[in-house]
Amino acid sequence: MKIVVCVKQVPSSEARIVIDADNTGIRLDEVEMVVNPYDEYAVEEALRIREARGGGEVIIATVGPEKAQTEIRKCLAMGADRGVIVQDEAFLGGDGLGTARILADVIRALEPDLVLCGKLSIDVESDLVGVALAEQLGWAHASLVTKIEWTGDRQARVHREIEGGAELVEISLPAVLTAEKGLNEPRYASLKGIMAAKRKPIEVVRPNASPDEVNAAAAGVRTVSLAPPPARTGGKKFADEVEVAVPRVVELLRTEAKVL
């Protein structure tokens, strides 16, 4: 079984994010970068599937600048076999549909049985690429997957998290599955894995699409401005005795906030 896992390099969720002077971009130069946490669930699941079947190949696919190879290397250290990256600046800067188009081109050339990726990336959170990729490939998909039960070589029943419960979806390969938190616990790379990863190949590739079809100009959305979240001011804090504070707050909820 050949599995491609789509992985994105993103700022760590702990990182301090600085908005640049003209308010349309983020300063990423001194920020700690990591593998998108949701993509880690996808990498882990691919490795488990390979282990369960006693063989197969796990390929990491990334669209991003050259320094994103660091994240591919981390996934190789976890146990993936090789990586491919589209890093030519001309293709970067587009929206989620542009990224999906690039990945579709790369993936078609690889001919995998299964594509796994995180449900969204924690940086721009467009929540688009995985499912858009399935449409581009003409494949079936299931998003928000929290469990995969294989019912055959090329068939699975997946749990898809929805409001108040889960859908049990029957799906056949080839397919795209997007991972939700809870799918698994990603492993830490061992020292042996980290050393082995240095020798695993990362290939630089180009999509069939032209830059004009996938770049910022082609994107259906543009950023007007970025700002820190609006401050919530005027909050009241009560440190009184419980018998005083609680009735006061409940009264304010009723009369001032009018939420009761």
């Binding site: 721009v124 959170e125 700002a227 820190p228």
Partner: peptide, 14 residues
């Protein structure tokens, strides 16, 4: 909301 709520982005459909 982007970057885990650290950035509020105003975006426009083109």
């Amino acid at each position: 909301s982007m970057y885990g709520g650290k950035v509020f982005a105003t975006v426009r459909a083109t």
